[in-house]
Design a protein around this nucleic acid. Structure first.
Lengths: 352, 352
DNA sequence: CTGAAAGCGCTAACAC
DNA sequence: GTGTTAGCGCTTTCAG
């Protein structure tokens, strides 16, 4: 393997000093345009690219950020990753990715990270708050994707969970539903708490009571959605509509509802959250609250760069809008016009 | 921000030279165990971690690999990423990720990459063959995830597409189908060609002819699957079963078939490929050929490390097994026992 | 076994 | 404008 060109090679060949080469490449204004041209030409001839490690060592920065994501990576994380990658690429930065895996590692791991990267992006709550505090003490810039941690305020970018869920619930109310349940995610998810709040607000505003048995805690997964819907269906007076805190659970709910021989959306309307890629591909096409995943990644990068540039600034907590994507599982766009009446029909599960 | 500890700090405090510190950390056998202990203790006290850039500069290696993936990243890529990340983590390597984006960039981009990484993993055919050749000339190790490129032989890890498709087709034959179509991916996908071959072989072995109108070229996307199925249904004598080259197209096909009022799987059996996460969550649950995504990523890392370690070795082209995941869209597990007869029923589309 | 010293390739004061 | 030079933090001969 032929050794790569270095500043020295280039300098020599261009008949200048290495400083001039470095200056030229840095775009310094104080280089005679003739010299510049000569250098640039040699650079091109030799296909010279500055050695990143050397540059980093001298510069004391890495031009690299890390993206750390939790182990349970749902289908939509890839959109966020893509957003991050794209946005950093524009700035000529690199992205290192890390899964959190075993906690054991992350302590050691984070320490080692320090001089590997200029900043971090955490996906969801992929990290304990203590670490966040530690990072702040080290002056290592980071931004959270998700609601910011109460104990360790920082930059963050999240979506308008409250409004999204509120709108979804309102939509169900608009369809005439009065018995609306919700399947939430794990109670330690801050996103979920906000979604729950949105749901509650909508129902309260409509003057409806919220029987506790209509608030079921799920786990963000398909099976959890199934189980939750089964619980709902077995109640004495089951709901006629349910809001799920993510699309996977909504899909699970759909599947369970089918087993109870419920017609969707006539007997049971369902709205999800996220708008994952397959949401529109299932039957019935899922009405859901869209989160701008890719945008989330891009925005996180933006905030991170601002923070890297100017450490002192006040924290920014960006909230990206969500909006309802209306498909058929809510009762809209139904061809057969019987949706309005059938909702009141009996809900006795078939299998009991 | 307190400056981080360096070899010098540690050396001084431990009363040894920097060389000894370096040796200790490198695990060199020729360090008196007493000295070693002293050094290690100081290292611990100071929370010392060698500066990666400095180490890289001295070492001339980066302990980093890059994963480059194409722009059209389907839902399953995240599993591959996870596999890669996990496997590299074990070796204490880092993973940089890059999307290919605009071709324009990738030329410049690849050159710059050289000293950033020790090796590359390419997802699918995310890169032109010329670049692969160029990389080989530079002695930059890389492995392909997907069938190896004919013009630039290299390490690769792919799945047994042929056998997977073959098995799927056989399964359909076993169900009694004789009129089996296939929706392939873009013709430039080597994976797809192999799948097509598997399908053809199974049908030939069964003594069936292959009318060209039953081989439809799709685009790996949902809409492509829809379009293809519509084409199929509009034929004079439509197939009774179809094989799709990936799950998204299978889902599109299902949706289109429904519009033609076909009952699934009774009137139309469908088998997909990939086994993406949602395959089991749709209606009917999709029978499909499983690709071990995560394993694919892990294996790629394994091959890459071998290559990095010993450059001279012959190319390895690993092929991971696929297998049929039987759910309901093929006609299995159907509760109502009428599947065998209804298949011959008329296929006149409802909407014509 | 241990230390001194020469790089690794680049940047940025500092002179001229 | 341009060159000289001193680091950046670590690894690795080469002596001892």
């Amino acid at each position: 393997m032929k050794k790569n060109a270095t500043v020295y090679t280039v300098a020599e060949r261009a008949g200048v000093s290495i400083a001039t080469v470095s200056r030229t490449l840095a775009g310094s204004p104080k280089v005679a345009s003739l010299t510049r041209q000569r250098v640039l030409q040699v650079v091109d001839e030799l296909n010279y690219v500055p050695h990143p490690a050397a540059r980093r060592l001298a510069h004391q920065r890495t031009d690299t950020i890390a993206l750390v994501f939790p182990d349970i990576s749902g289908p939509y994380y890839s959109s966020v990753i893509r957003g991050v990658e794209q946005a950093t690429g524009v700035h000529d930065y690199n992205v290192l990715i890390y899964g959190t895996r075993d906690k054991a590692r992350s302590d050691q791991f984070l320490r080692g990270l320090t001089s590997k990267i200029d900043g971090l992006i955490f996906l969801a709550r992929s990290i304990e708050e203590d670490y966040l505090a530690w990072l702040q003490k080290q002056d290592i810039p980071f931004v959270l994707i998700g609601p910011s941690a109460p104990l360790a305020p920082s930059d963050s970018v999240s979506v308008d969970n409250l409004h999204g869920a509120y709108q979804a619930a309102r939509h169900l109310l608009w369809h005439g539903h009065r018995r609306i349940a919700i399947i939430t995610g794990p109670s330690n998810s801050p996103d979920c708490r906000q979604r729950l709040d949105g749901y509650k607000r909508a129902l309260r505003e409509a003057g409806l009571s919220l029987p506790p048995e209509w608030i079921i805690t799920g786990n963000f997964q398909y099976e959890g959605g199934r189980t939750a819907m089964v619980q709902l269906c077995q109640q004495d007076s089951p709901p006629t509509a349910v809001l799920a805190a993510n699309d996977e659970m909504a899909m699970g709910a759909i599947s369970a509802a089918r087993q109870y021989r419920l017609r969707l959306p006539e007997d049971m309307a369902i709205i999800g959250f996220d708008d994952i890629q397959v949401a529109g591909m299932i039957d019935p096409p899922l009405t859901t609250v869209l989160q701008p995943m890719q945008r989330l990644g891009e925005k996180a990068v933006e905030l991170l760069f601002q923070r890297i540039r100017t450490q002192g600034a006040p924290w920014q907590n960006e909230i990206l809008p969500t909006h309802l994507v209306v498909r058929r599982s809510c009762g809209c766009l139904t061809n057969q016009g019987l949706s309005q009446k059938s909702r009141v029909s009996a809900l006795t599960p078939f299998s009991r």
